[in-house]
Amino acid sequence: MTSGPLSLETLQPMTRHILRCRERRVAEASDLLGLDLPRSAYGTASHADRHALWLGPDEWLILAPEPFAATADVWAAIGASFVEVSDRQVALQLSGAGADTCLAGGCPLDLALPAFPIGACARTVFHKAEIIVWRTGSSRFQVEIGRSFAPYVTRLLSQQVQRGRSLAVPT
């Protein structure tokens, strides 16, 4: 499988929400979202362009290209909290051969495919910033970063990417 050259790009703005609810409300929340909310660590679920990333047993990051129709009342009715955080964080996409090694410069998780397969996500750290790392391909990651931490993470990742590119041996 080819994975292409290392690259780092900032993704377009998207709609983000933090969903929080009790476990017994997960089924209803899933119905409202139109996808099966993941129920365990590292889990993600997608339907069309809509994604749910497990952050904790009562917390999910919901990503979508467009705003949601459901209002606060609908969520309140099932005892859930659905708070928009679209502008709270920004997303980078890191892809190409050695993307996992770039992350390993500051992220302590085991990102080998068997331990962190495609679709896995985790909130963790990168150097001194909190990130959410989501593997969207065998060598492609989406990294969600708090808005004001983005320049810091981007610079550190760019250094790794540049270095990784200079090391890449043409095949």
Binding site: T124, V125, E130
Partner: peptide, 8 residues
């Protein structure tokens, strides 16, 4: 507390 993880 798993602060930079599941936050529990």
């Amino acid at each position: 507390r798993h602060l930079h993880g599941c936050a529990r």
